[in-house]
Design a protein around this nucleic acid. Sequence first.
DNA 1: TTGACATATCAACGATACTTGATTTGATTC
DNA 2: GAATCAAATCAAGTATCGTTGATATGTCAA
Lengths: 116, 116
Amino acid sequence: MVATPAPARRPPAVDLDRLTTLGQAVSDPTRAGVLELLRFGERCVCDLQSDLDVAQSRLSFHLKVLRDAGLVVDRREGRWSYYALVPKAIEELHDLVAALRPRPGRLPVVQEGCCD
Amino acid sequence: MVATPAPARRPPAVDLDRLTTLGQAVSDPTRAGVLELLRFGERCVCDLQSDLDVAQSRLSFHLKVLRDAGLVVDRREGRWSYYALVPKAIEELHDLVAALRPRPGRLPVVQEGCCD
DNA sequence: TTGACATATCAACGATACTTGATTTGATTC
DNA sequence: GAATCAAATCAAGTATCGTTGATATGTCAA
């Protein structure tokens, strides 16, 4: 019989690395705007550019951040690039935030003193 | 008769300002660590400090960012300050992320060209 | 009081992140 | 091929953010 892994003594730890990466991706107005637009389906860069009214290289920069974070994917077709949301990544962030919810019934209020 | 506001032609816009603010609050490892710890109830600063092993002024700085974003509240008791999650703010972020989910059945795929 | 302690604030520096304009790459059209 | 176009990349500057050490504020205990 093989040793079983030690039972979790605490609720599952939140993947903080992933949370910070996704949080950072979402923390810029241009990038948030891109995500908002992509809700309705994939869009080409030139489309996003005119909808958001940003310089081309700037948009390209932000798209790269979103891509690196895994929130969007791109697809090239002729001279155009189309970007689309990655639903799984949105769900991932959704779940990470859910994991931050206060846990009911644990340490509701502090007792005597605090340190030690 | 007073002019009625123009009816919304699209699904409700996402509150991008709020999303970026909360995203930014969550985009730093120290701050994410604080939130993770606070899931179990309020903690005093000195507690957080030793759990996270960060300098005092640094923690204080990050707590301020979280406080300014509305994600935590503090309560002073004697010499100690206790910080706690604001469940409503977590829900708010949760909902904002949900609002980024792709909308089914709209612009599923791009047609001819893109930038007419 | 005085001293020790918990926390907040501040100023200065260093590190990241964002913006801009120019250049490059690759695809299309003439 | 040459010109054009969409998009990416790069280098430079600027702005924003995070860290550090010092100081300030307020509280408690001796």
